[in-house]
C-alpha cells in the first residue's frame, strides 16, 4: 500500500511486516466496545503508560472475532493477537465472550499443530470498571510476545524457488498428494 512498508512476503531476520512499532513486537488487540475498550479508555484517561506494541481494534463484542481474524492478523504481521472482552457471564450481548473463549482456544490448538507457539493468541476478560485488568493484560501479552522470537512468515507458493534457499524456515508444508478424483473435484469446487 505504501512505499515505506517493507515487503513482508519475504522472510527476514528483523521483526517482519510494517505493523510493528520500531523495535517492538506487533500485537493486535481485539477489544469489545462495552468492557475491554471501555477499560482501555479509562486506563488511558488515567494516563497509565502502556507498551507501544499493542494496537487496539474495536469490535462490538468479542463474539465477532473469528479464527480467521486471529490467524490472518498473525499471518499479516502481528507477532501476537489478543482478544479482550467482558467477564464471562456479563457479556453485553449475552454470550459472545463464551464463543470468543472457545475460538481463541481453537486457534491456540491450530497454532500448536503447525509448530507455532500457542501463547501468541490469548483471551483476557475484564469489566469496564477494571482498567487495571486491561493494563495487566496488555503488559502480560507484551512480556510473553517479547520473550518469543518475531513470528516468521513464509511465501505460500509451492515451488522451490521462493525466497532464499538457505532459509531454515522455508515452507515445509505441502498439500497432500492429490488423487485424480480429488484433483478433478478441486477443479470443480474452486468455482
Amino acid at each position: 500500500m505504501t512505499a515505506e512498508r517493507s515487503n513482508h512476503d519475504r522472510t527476514t531476520a528483523e521483526p517482519s511486516g510494517s505493523t510493528h512499532v520500531t523495535g517492538d513486537r506487533s500485537i493486535v488487540a481485539f477489544c469489545c466496545r462495552e468492557c475491554a475498550y471501555a477499560a482501555a479508555d479509562a486506563s488511558a484517561n488515567a494516563r497509565t503508560s502502556l507498551p507501544p506494541s499493542v494496537r487496539l481494534v474495536l469490535v462490538p463484542c468479542t463474539g465477532r472475532v473469528s479464527p480467521l481474524h486471529l490467524v490472518t492478523a498473525l499471518a499479516e504481521g502481528a507477532d501476537g493477537v489478543m482478544v479482550a472482552g467482558c467477564l464471562l457471564g456479563q457479556c453485553h450481548y449475552r454470550e459472545g465472550n463464551f464463543n470468543a473463549v472457545d475460538r481463541v482456544a481453537f486457534v491456540q490448538r491450530l497454532l500448536e499443530s503447525v509448530g507455532v507457539e500457542p501463547e501468541r493468541c490469548r483471551m483476557f476478560t475484564m469489566s469496564a470498571g477494571e482498567p487495571p485488568k486491561f493494563v495487566a493484560a496488555v503488559k502480560e501479552m507484551d512480556r510473553v510476545i517479547g520473550a518469543l522470537p518475531p513470528l516468521q512468515r513464509h511465501d505460500t507458493s509451492m515451488s522451490e524457488d521462493a525466497g532464499d534457499a538457505a532459509e531454515p524456515a522455508k515452507a515445509a508444508v505441502r498439500t497432500r498428494a492429490a488423487t485424480p478424483a480429488k484433483a478433478a473435484a478441486a477443479t470443480r469446487g474452486a468455482a
Partner: peptide, 27 residues
C-alpha cells in the same frame, strides 16, 4: 483464507487432528 493464513506462519505439517471446543461449530 484461514488455511492460507495458517500456511504463512506454519513451521511444520500438522501432526494430527486437534480437539475442537464446543462453541466452535464449523471448524
Amino acid at each position: 483464507a484461514l488455511g492460507a493464513a495458517l500456511r504463512r506462519i506454519a513451521r511444520r505439517e500438522p501432526a494430527g487432528p486437534i480437539e475442537v471446543p464446543p462453541r466452535v461449530t464449523v471448524y
